[in-house]
Design a protein around this nucleic acid. Structure first.
Length: 440
RNA sequence: GUGGUUAUAGCUCAGUUGGUUAGAGCACCGGUUUGUGGUAUCGGGGGUCGCGGGUUCGAAUCCCGUUAGCCACCCCA
């Protein structure tokens, strides 16, 4: 055994593992293409500053960063969004809108590994840029739903929690907490994991003697599950600034979006759940996460609107919404439910070869068949027919092509169907056609 | 970063109160039937028992350290 090991949090993909990976990517690409998203990619290594610019200096502790030989501070990418923002910003004026892009690539985070979290993971990223209205959210979230449905998961298996940082801002503003809102949202993000006393303490530190009332109003807001409950919640707190107009516009957006899901027949997948605010302050509107209904896993995917980021990264003012979906949690879920297909790298035909004279003929056919697009395999060494048929079975081939002395004499190849065990002699010049028929 | 837990063959695991050369099943390779395949039979290769130190006449087994895996917290772009 070698003394060399792979680094912590980095995976190796043996052929059977890689087949699962390829399956995930295939489904992702197929579905993304159905939605007319275009695939792109960026550098895996970027300047450290790029990520700090988006997320702040604290991010460095979780980055795979180092100094390169040219004394540049660099980092493996922990996410794709800053790269995407830069790429879009660079050609913002010439890109046809809406911009619908996706990417499948490896990302790196220097963190302690645990279930569903590694140091190198693959993420599907999908973003829509240049559209400020909820049509973008509708398109993106319906893509997200089909991406998961593509693996055979349905309404009973997963759902989307839809929330809105705008509503939270308005709600807090209505209570006179406009400036304190970002800090309050940080607390809301951790609400479920935080004992009530701790929450009260923290809110009091921000809102003084109004902390207790704020805690009650947050608790009420978290229970909102539809638009009627939403307006009721606002009516109950209307003591601060008048947000009536902005609220109405926002409610209209919600209606448009929810109606859209209804039209698409996807309403059963989406739940209004204001407990999702997502920790990142750069989200500016709708935010959402996809969850296993069993809830035993981490979020399958998460995203939201980030209208200020492109400008912050040096680009023009451009609205954007996007999400990321990792391969680790998704693969875990598929395996838990036993719907990860078992894969064998199969071939169309496996050759059974009698001896040296027969081998010369078989090699000629093997090369010709391969050039024509068939996948063909054959044993390197001469051995008994019994052994070769075992190998043929193990290869997953649909048919065995038998090159024996009898066949050689007659100028034919015996074609054996390994499923129904039927056999037929085929003249060598007709082999390609016969094989095509048999495989179709 | 904090805490818990585990570590024996490629995989799943045995291994007695510390006692000779560390085992099994599966997988892999080879032979039995000199032209017919999932489950037959015989054989083979493969392990410094995660690594390092200590206790002991003797350590896979006991003690300490360390690394790695797993799990939870923190964080989650």
């Amino acid at each position: 055994m070698s003394n060399f090991k792979s680094l912590p949090g980095f995976r190796e993909f043996y052929p059977e593992d890689f087949a699962e990976r390829r399956f995930l990517f295939q489904v992702w690409r197929q579905v993304a293409r159905r939605f007319s998203f275009q695939e792109f990619d960026g550098p895996v290594l970027e300047s450290l500053e790029l990520f700090k610019a988006k997320s702040g200096d604290e991010i460095e502790s979780q980055l795979f960063c180092f100094e390169d030989k040219g004394d540049r501070e660099v980092s493996l990418r922990p996410e794709l969004t800053p790269t995407l923002a830069r790429m879009v910003a660079a050609r913002a004026n010439s890109l046809k809108r809406p911009i619908k892009w996706f990417s499948i690539g490896d990302n790196f985070r220097y963190e302690r590994t645990q279930k569903g979290r590694l140091r190198c993971f693959t993420q599907l990223n999908a973003d829509i840029l240049g559209e400020a209205g909820p049509a973008a959210e509708l398109e993106l979230i319906s893509l997200l739903i089909q991406l998961i449905q593509g693996f055979g998961l349905g309404q009973d298996d997963f759902f989307i929690r839809l929330s809105d940082r705008n509503l939270w801002m308005l709600y807090l503003e209505a209570q006179g907490f406009q400036e304190e809102a970002p800090k309050i949202l940080e607390i809301v993000d951790k609400w479920e994991r935080m004992p009530e006393e701790v929450a009260r303490e923290k809110l009091s530190a921000i809102a003084g003697e109004r902390g207790e009332g704020l805690q009650a109003s947050i608790t009420a807001f978290l229970k909102v599950g539809n638009l009627a409950e939403l307006s009721a919640a606002f009516e109950a707190v209307s003591s601060g600034a008048d947000v009536g107009e902005a609220l109405q516009a926002r409610v209209d957006d919600w209606s448009t979006l929810l109606d859209g899901f209804e039209s698409m027949g996807l309403a059963g997948f989406v739940e209004m759940d204001l407990s999702i605010v997502r920790g990142l302050a750069y989200y500016t509107g709708f935010v959402f996460e996809a969850f296993d209904r069993a809830k035993s896993n981490r979020a399958i995917a998460g995203g939201g609107r980030y209208n200020n980021l492109i400008k912050k990264m040096g680009g023009p003012d451009m609205p954007a919404v996007g999400f990321g979906m990792g391969d680790v949690v998704l693969a875990d879920i598929l395996k838990e439910r036993g719907i990860m297909p078992k894969f064998v790298d199969t071939v169309d035909a496996y050759m059974v070869i009698g001896g040296e004279a027969e081998r010369a003929v078989a090699l000629a056919d093997a090369n010709a068949l391969r050039q024509s697009g068939f996948s063909v395999d054959y044993p390197f060494k001469n051995s008994g027919f019994g052994k070769q048929f075992k190998a043929a079975s193990a290869s997953g081939a649909r048919v065995a092509l038998i090159y024996g002395s009898e066949e050689l004499e007659k100028g034919v190849v015996k074609l054996r169907d390994l499923n129904d065990r039927s056999e037929e002699d085929v003249p060598r010049e007709r082999l390609m056609l016969a094989l095509r028929d048999r495989l179709s």
